[in-house]
Simulated assay, not measured.
Amino acid sequence: MDIEGSVVIVTGGNRGIGEAFVRAFVAAGAKRVYVGARDPGSAAHLVAEAPDHVVAVQLDVSKPDQIEAAAAQCKDVSIVVNNAGAFLNKRLMAAEDMSTAREEMEVNYFGLLGMCRAFAPALKANGGGAIVNVLSAGGLVAVPAMGGYSPSKFAARAASTCIRAELAPQGTHVSALIVGSVDTRMAAHVVGQKERPEDIAKVGLRAIKRKIDEIDTDRMAVETRADLARDPKGLERAMAKMLFADQVTTGR
């Protein structure tokens, strides 16, 4: 699929990986990039950088009415990037209640599913297009220290496979990006090597162009998949030990 001339919507596009995606699409010649953000004003800097190409849209993916409103406003979309995510850093059992786990599932799974459902008709009308789901190495292996985030990414990964099969007849391709540790606000508590958001976006655009179903975007994701294949029980024990570590680190 060609990026040049495409029309894109990026959820959570005002910062981090989403922000990098917006800039990458503009640089690759996208006709228009809609930046989905809870506060459209937070994307003002991106609009200012490319006022002829970037449009800020109010979009909280945990609110179905806002998803529907965005789909009605952005009918020319040919690429959807589901990047918005929630990590609330609460344990499944130790948290005072299940509200944080519900919120992580609402954003990371139901928000992604809602976006795919709402924009599928536009993608079909515009030639099929593509969906890119920004997932996590925490969706390959269960990470107890990540609480509800890891289970929500498992769900989103499974959904990506199901949605890919359902939308294939209309010519829409679905790519799943398995992301490790990236230098964003969400990973501020993590110590050690972190990837640049720009490099994740670069891999994402390559996945669109080549119609790649699932791709590991960085070293941590690649090593996690390799460790899972080599010694799944050993990796499970290593993840469990993180619950009692003084700090979360990307070191092996």
Rank of each mutant, 00 (worst) to 15 (best):
114 G>K: 08
121 P>V: 04
111 G>W: 01
97 D>Y: 05
110 F>V: 06
112 L>G: 04
111 G>T: 01
98 M>C: 10
112 L>V: 15
93 M>Y: 14
121 P>N: 13
125 A>N: 12
110 F>T: 00
92 L>F: 03
102 R>A: 00
114 G>V: 06
115 M>D: 07
98 M>E: 14
99 S>Q: 08
97 D>A: 06
91 R>H: 14
124 K>G: 05
98 M>W: 11
99 S>F: 02
123 L>Y: 02
112 L>R: 07
100 T>F: 05
120 A>M: 01
110 F>Y: 09
93 M>S: 15
98 M>D: 15
101 A>G: 08
102 R>S: 11
125 A>F: 08
93 M>W: 09
102 R>N: 12
104 E>C: 00
108 N>R: 02
121 P>G: 07
122 A>V: 10
125 A>I: 09
102 R>I: 10
111 G>F: 02
102 R>P: 02
95 A>I: 00
93 M>A: 13
101 A>W: 00
117 R>E: 13
101 A>K: 01
97 D>R: 07
111 G>L: 00
100 T>V: 04
110 F>C: 05
109 Y>L: 14
113 L>A: 01
111 G>H: 00
114 G>S: 10
117 R>N: 09
94 A>Y: 12
108 N>Q: 01
116 C>H: 10
119 F>D: 10
122 A>D: 11
103 E>P: 12
97 D>W: 09
113 L>H: 05
103 E>C: 07
98 M>Y: 09
92 L>V: 05
104 E>T: 00
114 G>N: 08
110 F>E: 06
112 L>A: 13
113 L>T: 04
122 A>R: 05
107 V>D: 03
104 E>G: 00
